[in-house]
């Protein structure tokens, strides 16, 4: 009978094992670039990951302690019968302990208050509008079923003028410069998700929400839609290209603008050819 406790012990050990192994495999751990699995590319990402790891340790400790106590109780206090079929040992008769109740309320309370206060500044840095960078807007990003429409201000630095640059599912920015984006939606709710930069923000129709982030490695990253938005939600994917230098970015922009001027398209048409799956 008491060996049932082993099942519980095994499940707990398996869980701890899986979580403990995770950091050692890039496939199992928080998403980072393939080349550098140990490096988080954004400042917010580094803070968030640090917090994540603190919570992982804390909850891991709580988990191991509670499961150990549970399994021990299951093992140690299993009913056993003596030769005559009578219980070998009576159960203890007590109704609790006020002192213990107080202790195990106060300790978690301390831990939780610590956590709550500790993370406030990160949250404020990532989301509070007062923390938004005072830089010009990199682009206005509008979610629509099922693509990300990007509108760059173009040479005059203003969005909504004739020289705006339009792209679809293609967001470009410059390494080490904080990118400020105005997030919108033209139909249903979408969510702007950059797994590698640990950024997520819903795009809500009727609202314009500022989002900012940075990236310290040039390269190509993925932009996902994280809020259910219809049948094509799963494939509402975009590219994020981080340029090494401002000059490179501007060259890209100039080339794109020239292309756009040639084809005379203001706003790109909805890509109906994407109508089929995959």
């Amino acid at each position: 009978m008491r060996y049932w406790s082993l099942i519980f012990a095994l499940a707990a050990a398996f869980s701890v094992g899986a979580f403990a192994y995770a950091p050692f495999s890039p496939d199992w751990w928080l998403p980072n670039t393939v080349a550098e699995p140990g490096h988080v590319v954004s400042k917010a990402g580094r803070e968030i990951d640090a917090l994540f790891i603190i919570i992982l340790w804390l909850t891991g400790g709580v988990f191991v302690a509670t499961q150990a106590a549970l399994v021990w109780a299951q093992f140690r206090y299993a009913d056993r019968l003596d030769a005559e079929g009578k219980p070998a040992r009576p159960a203890r008769y007590f109704h609790g302990s006020q002192r213990l109740e107080v202790i195990w309320t106060i300790i978690p309370a301390g831990i939780l208050v610590f956590l709550a206060l500790y993370q406030m500044s990160t949250w404020a840095d990532v989301k509070f509008r007062s923390a938004a960078p005072r830089t010009p807007v990199l682009a206005e990003l509008t979610g629509r079923q099922f693509q990300w429409m990007v509108k760059y201000p173009g040479p005059d630095g203003k969005v909504g003028t004739a020289d705006d640059l339009f792209t679809v599912n293609d967001l470009h920015l410059v390494k080490d410069e904080t990118a400020l984006i105005h997030l919108k939606s033209s139909d249903v709710i979408h969510s702007f998700f950059l797994p590698q930069m640990r950024i997520k923000q819903d795009a809500v129709p009727g609202m314009t929400i500022p989002v900012w982030f940075d990236c310290d490695r040039a390269g190509r990253y993925e932009l996902a839609c994280a809020e259910l938005c219809g049948w094509g939600h799963y494939k509402m994917r975009g590219d994020v290209v981080v340029h090494e230098t401002r000059a490179e970015f501007e060259a890209w922009q100039a080339a794109k603008l020239a292309e756009q001027g040639r084809s005379q398209v203001g706003e790109p048409e909805g890509e109906t050819s994407e109508g089929d799956r995959q």
Partner: peptide, 9 residues
């Protein structure tokens, strides 16, 4: 867990 502790499970 306290309930199980010391019991006859």
């Amino acid at each position: 867990i306290g309930t199980m502790w010391g019991g006859r499970i």
